[in-house]
Design a protein around this nucleic acid. Sequence first.
DNA 1: TGAATGATGCGCT
DNA 2: GCGCATCATTCAT
Length: 192
Amino acid sequence: MSKKILRSFYNRDTLEVAQDILGKYIVYNSPSGEISARIVEVEAYIGENDPACHAARGMTSRNEIMFGQAGFSYIYLIYGMYNCLNFVTEKKGFPAALLLRAAEIVDGFEVVVKNNPQKSKSRILSGPGLFCKAFGLTKEHNGLDLTQEILYVESHDNNKVEIIQSERIGISNGKEHLWRFYDKNSQAVSQK
DNA sequence: TGAATGATGCGCT
DNA sequence: GCGCATCATTCAT
């Protein structure tokens, strides 16, 4: 039994959403077929007081989606070559988002493997850049409504997850916040 | 097995 | 120009 997550799920404290979204399934109706994957790793970026958050220096044209309503996608390009997918959380006017760092492919491996043929099934979504590359997500998918049919998350019954909390990865400021959450038992978590 | 580096777009100082 | 919420490859131990 599965059901699509509604906007009220995202419209809460970001750290609560982070832990609740682990073990849920992200579904993408791509042009070449449906893909779904189990979310196993996320990081939280919260508010203008978080130095690692893109919103730390106020609203710009790049990050304005984070200031908007919860339940939308925020996708940006990093290092000139990799896209990263975030879920916007919290109420309108409060900038916060969850970075999707890793997932386990469930359906649509044959679609995903075309985008990255060298990768094994268990590691093909192990990293934010890899995830977007495999799913075929780019900044063109920025601002999608996650309560619509193209890109959304659904919950499944009986998904118990052992959650580990740790320091965020790849940032130089704001490391004192332990805002990375991942599934202890997953082989797909990034960084080994 | 680990550290260093190159690729490369774009928003900000 | 600089510096990034990265990854794959190369070079050194």
